[in-house]
Write a protein that binds this DNA or RNA. Structure first.
Lengths: 257, 257
DNA sequence: CGAAGTTTTGAGGACCTTCAAAAGTTGTGG
DNA sequence: CCACAACTTTTGAAGGTCCTCAAAACTTCG
């Protein structure tokens, strides 16, 4: 069993190291994390708003959304995650989950104890920095969603989300960004965009008739990436693919005391 | 000069320590940070989207907004900050600013070199954890804004923002949450809420006629906090006033190698 | 093959926007 | 201290985007 779990962790490590190279000791410590695999069916809630935290989740395969609810029943999806993502890094330090996590397809996660994550970040500063960076990127994506929901028209808004999902799928090594699986229903897209399912459907049709995209089954094809990116003013900088600042070699100058 | 700068830093420290107590060495290292004071007039841009980062800012006094622009001129304010807040912690690790910062009243900040922040986080794990926690809270607030903009009606949305500003003012020790300075124009509120200034004005009038709030000059009074919080489904949990998880004493169990 | 879920269609209406201008407030310099 | 300019808030009217409700067509899955 430990072997198959290892292979899952190494995916997380590979993804993290694409941005932040780690020192060998840190890599070894990461790989020796004690993990527990769990699987979830489609539409299954993995974490519920208000739960007390306890575990970080590494998404091995599948698609997961993070959402918040209103007392009147309104739901807002605030993020989508694909294989390779670290979910709920927040739970390492935040005591109570302020959001829910839901699987959109059959999904496998590796569950890691919060305390282990925290100790890892404390003992290995480069891992701590990598976690902090991931959190900063998440925050930046949330800001872009604010802009998207607050200030773009419905068609641009939908287009922007579709481009983001394609971009992330390619970055995760799952698909090409111009042709990718998108197993998210229009109702869920609506919840992510602050729109109604009916209106998402009409916007989707409009994007198709304009030739901006094609759908076949649960797959999306974007014939001219540049044209759609231009239409939606999509610039992937907000996902910070350039990676974090690297600390310069001169670590000696320590203090000003 | 160093003395007055010290008093600014100690405000930051006090605010951070309200959540995360630091060890004496860490506190001392924090206080010996090399800082540089800068002041900005009303409506002055402090950081522009696309700038390369270099400095974190500690907000000593004033009000600052973080915003993002669309090519068509649309602006979305994604956060407001008050005295005591650490702005642009992100710039420690993110190379390029994906947002602008603007002063809304005459404002003073202490500017700290990114590298110093990074080294501090690396050398003192408790400071690193405090920075990470601040970033997690910021991310949580962005999520709540997604929900606010995406799923609440205009009046609830405005009410929610007003409550957040009041709550933060009290938490920062500047005012009472039921009676606080709000030097933000309706046009800027509109940019934060994804609405037009005209509609913000009408919502404001409605909130007043319903008795939910009163305005006098640039001050807001909330006669019945509970009633307005209920109307806007405002629950401050998303700002995580409970503070971060504290690491248990047994630090010895290190690895599973 | 039937059941459940998802996408599509239609019609009417609400919420919020746009544009334009007046009234009120704040700040500045003579 | 007043006068004036600049900014902010307020008002009105008309229109568009997006919503609500409801039902039909299509797809997926057991």
């Amino acid at each position: 069993m430990q072997n198959s779990l290892d292979s899952g962790l190494s995916l997380a490590l590979r993804k993290m190291e694409r941005r932040t190279p780690l020192r060998p000791e840190a890599r070894k410590a990461f790989m020796s994390l004690h993990v527990h695999r769990r699987t979830f069916d489609t539409q299954r809630e993995m974490v519920r708003e208000g739960d007390s935290n306890g575990h970080c989740l590494f998404l091995e395969s599948g698609v997961v959304s993070m959402s918040k609810m209103l007392p009147n029943g309104g739901r807002q999806i605030v993020a989508f995650h694909v294989a390779g993502d670290l979910l709920g890094l927040g739970s390492a330090l935040l005591l109570i989950a302020d959001h829910s996590l839901r699987a959109h397809v059959p999904t496998a996660v590796l569950s890691i104890d919060d305390g282990d994550i925290l100790r890892l970040a404390e003992d290995y500063p480069d891992i701590g920095r990598a976690f902090w960076f991931e959190t900063l990127v998440d925050a930046s994506i949330f800001r872009e969603w604010n802009l998207n929901i607050g200030r773009r028209g419905a068609r641009e808004r939908l287009a922007h989300l579709v481009l983001e999902i394609g971009y992330k799928s390619e970055a995760a090594g799952l698909d090409q960004k111009e042709n990718f699986a998108c197993p998210i229903t229009q109702a869920d897209l609506a919840d992510a965009l602050g729109l109604t399912p009916v209106h998402v459907n009409r916007c989707m049709q409009w994007l198709r008739t304009e030739g901006f995209l094609e759908t076949c089954g649960r797959r999306i094809v974007i014939p001219d990436w540049g044209a759609l990116a231009d239409f939606a003013s999509f610039r992937p900088l907000y996902m910070h693919p350039e990676g974090p600042r690297v600390l310069t070699a001169e670590r000696s100058i320590r203090s000003h005391a």
